[in-house]
Every structure is written in C-alpha cells, then in structure tokens.
C-alpha cells in the first residue's frame, strides 16, 4: 500500500509513517481522512485538541521491552474526573501498540484477540476475573469514556459513539488490560504499567521552567 497520497479535500500531500494506518488527519486542512483500499476519503474535520500536559508528542521515540517505537498518532479520551491520551506506537517491526498516559502514569498495551466472549457493557461487574494467557486479570475500574479527538495515524477509524464503557483490569504483578466497548464485540488490549525512566523517551515536549 502506498505511503503517500494527496488530501482529497485540499490536495496537499499526505504521507503515512505506517503502511497499515487506516485513519489520519490532513496536516493542512484538518480533514479527517480514512483510507479505503488505495483511496483517501474525507469523513469530517478534526477539532483542535484542548491543551494538555502530556510530555509525549507525535514523533516521540522510546523503548519498550527492548523494542524501539515511534509515536505516530493519538486518541484523546475524557471521563468524569479527567482525561488521558492513548498514543499510537509504531514499533520497528511494523507492529503497533498503545502508550497510555494518564497524569504522567504510563502503561503500554497491545490489541489482543479476546480469548472469551465478554459480557455486555451493563453486565460486567467490578471484581470479575478473566484468564488472559498466563495471568488472571481482575476488573478494578469501570469508566464511562468520551472520545475527544485524535491526531496522527491510527490503525482504525475512531468511534462515532458519543460515549462508551471502558473496563480496566489488573493483575497481581502490575500487568493491565482494557476491555474497550467502543466496538462490538469489545476490543481487548493487554500490557503492563511502565515507568517514565524505563521507556527512555526522547523528542519529548518541553515544559517551561523544567
């Protein structure tokens, strides 16, 4: 698949860092562009993301479990008590993952095939335990999430739902998982928490006075 195309709205060149990206935004006219086969289609316009204080930005680089990655996109979500970013990571081996940054608390996760059929959104209680691979994951938080906006390249088209349920799961050894009810069937992401130091992030934003 080609990595270069022209924006169907303004004609500006649009380049993809990742050949499998499905959604991006035109850097010039802010058109939301979705790739169908080889064609780009404008499906809407991106709103400016409200200011945030994540130290991460598009093109930030880092390391997770000895694999290098580059940040190529993000989705911004908000919930009752704040907001957070899911940064879309492109690893050197062309696989993709997510770096979640919630108040400078970091976790890396990957889309994982769900080994079980999850209960419907209203029927998943806190405390429920699922076995994913070797670990038992327990539902610790249920959050009603609202999609705020995105930038950069994404592996899927963003949700058109007003809000959806997100369940956080944890293990005894600080792994984590999210069951994301923005799609049906729900998506499962699994990974673990990571410290700022271990991610060895470069090309970060600067904070005045720091």
């Amino acid at each position: 698949m080609s990595r270069a195309a022209n924006c169907p709205a303004c004609g500006a060149p649009v380049t993809f860092a990742w050949s499998s990206a499905v959604q991006t935004a035109c850097p010039f006219c802010k058109a939301v562009l979705v790739r169908h086969d080889v064609d780009l289609a404008k499906v809407g316009e991106v709103a400016d993301l409200p200011p945030d204080s994540s130290p991460i930005q598009i093109m930030t680089e880092g390391v997770f479990d000895n694999r290098r990655f580059t940040v190529i996109g993000r989705i911004r979500y908000e919930w009752e008590q704040g907001n957070w970013n899911e940064w879309h990571l492109l690893f050197n081996d062309q696989t993709s993952g997510w770096l979640s940054d919630s108040q400078a608390d970091y976790a890396v996760s990957f889309l994982t095939a769900a080994p079980v059929a999850f209960p419907a959104a209203g029927e998943l209680p806190v405390g429920r335990v699922f076995q994913f691979g070797e670990s038992q994951f327990q539902v610790t938080h249920l959050t009603q999430v609202r999609y705020v906006g995105f930038e950069g390249e994404l592996p899927f088209t963003t949700t058109d739902q007003e809000s959806f349920l997100s369940a956080d799961l944890r293990t005894v050894d600080a792994r984590f998982a999210t069951i994301d009810y923005s799609e049906n069937p729900p998506l499962l992401f699994t990974g673990r928490f990571a410290t700022f130091e271990e991610l060895k992030l470069t090309n970060l934003r600067e904070f005045e006075g720091w």
């Binding site: 802010k30 991106v46 409200p50 204080s53 994540s54 930005q57 598009i58 934003r205 600067e206």
Partner: peptide
C-alpha cells in the same frame, strides 16, 4: 496540529470569589 513542542507555564488565576492571585504549577493536570 502537532502539539506545541513547548508547554508554557500556566498563567496565574484571579480568584472569582476574592480576586486573590492563585498560582498554578500542575499545568493542565
């Protein structure tokens, strides 16, 4: 659209109740 590379110090606020100055240090957190 890429976020500004430099995050400015948040501006101090004026208390809507007494008008006093409130310094901010936690950025948009």
């Amino acid at each position: 659209m890429v976020a500004a590379s430099r995050v400015p110090v948040p501006a101090a606020l004026n208390c809507p109740n007494c008008g006093g100055v409130i310094e901010l240090r936690g950025f948009s957190h």
